[in-house]
Design a protein around this nucleic acid. Structure first.
Length: 134
DNA sequence: TCCTTGACTCAGA
DNA sequence: CTCTGAGCCAAGG
């Protein structure tokens, strides 16, 4: 259940979709801004090319504004690192992930070949209207 | 209205 | 492995 928005910009509709996907990531697994963005179509009015570049940052924006029931800590960058500077919640994110069993190496990176979430199921995407039913 | 600033990524050096 | 710059757009000051 999302918050109530008096004037629904497309931006917020997009954020909602991002949150819905992030909620599918199981504990102990992670995904990246880029991959999350790739599961969604570009917001109305944005070109594919622009979305390819802007997508990841938009997902970041969605994380910055996400409701409490979204496991934002499971979204990290493509290098397997937490994308928050010290003092802005970065260490909190790491603690949360470690609490779920995710391990960081000596360079503060998560091994994506082990912990990367394989993505939402095809059925789920169809259910969400993000994929055509064959 | 102009200018800065992003919870990004990828290719090069 | 680390560091840069480019790519693109919207929100806030």
């Amino acid at each position: 259940m999302a918050a109530q928005y008096t004037s629904p910009p497309d931006r917020m509709a997009y954020f909602e979709q991002v949150w819905e996907i992030v909620r599918q990531i199981p504990a102990g697994r992670v995904s990246t801004y880029g991959r999350i963005a790739a599961y969604l179509p570009p917001p109305k009015g944005m070109s594919e090319q622009a979305y390819r570049v802007r997508g990841p940052r938009m997902v970041g924006g969605a994380m910055a504004a996400c409701p409490a029931d979204v496991p934002w800590q499971r979204v990290i960058n493509a290098q397997g690192k937490v994308s928050l500077r010290q003092g802005e919640g970065g260490e909190a994110q790491r603690v949360l992930l470690e609490g779920e069993g995710v391990e960081f190496d000596d360079k503060d990176r998560v091994d994506l070949s082990i912990y990367l979430w394989n993505g939402p199921s095809r059925e789920w995407l169809i259910e969400q209207g993000l994929l055509e039913k064959p």
